[in-house]
């Protein structure tokens, strides 16, 4: 490929990324859907997040996978008792950092 400019490639990639993100808003936002389709759509977040976490999180810290897992363990245990986002996220980073540094 012509190394002098990646700009056309970048624009092509931008279109390939943006159009699938945009199309549903243009076509589906006013649509009335049957109950079973609605139930399908409402299940998307749980299905997506489950697959986004596993198995990628198992190798979040490739040099020492146990550190990432212990960080995730903190988030899990914290989440059993308390809500919120900032503390469980910063805590997981802190635990992973400590385990990698001193573990």
């Amino acid at each position: 490929m012509d190394k002098s400019s990646f700009i056309p490639l970048i624009l092509g990639m931008a279109a390939a990324t943006y159009l699938p993100r945009l199309a549903p808003f243009m076509f589906f936002s006013d649509m009335k859907v049957p109950r079973v389709v609605d139930a399908f759509l409402k299940s998307i977040p749980v299905a997506a997040i489950g697959a986004l976490i596993v198995p990628s999180a198992l190798t979040a810290t490739p040099d020492m996978p146990a550190a990432g897992l212990m960080g995730m363990g903190f988030t899990l245990v914290y989440g059993l008792f308390r809500g919120g986002i900032i503390v469980p996220v910063l805590g997981s980073v802190g635990v992973a950092y400590l385990v990698m540094t001193f573990g």
Binding site: V46, I49, G50, L52, I53, S56, A57, A60, T61, P62, D63, M64, A67, G68, G71, M72, F74, T75, L76, Y78, G79, L80, G83, G84, I85, P88, V89, L90, G91, S92, V93, G94, A96, Y97, M100, T101
Partner: peptide, 20 residues
């Protein structure tokens, strides 16, 4: 070490959102 630890944030975020 810091870079890798911060990488855990994305997965912790997803889990924290999902927990409730």
């Amino acid at each position: 070490v810091l870079t890798q630890s911060m990488g855990v944030a994305l997965y912790a975020l997803l889990l924290a959102i999902l927990m409730p």
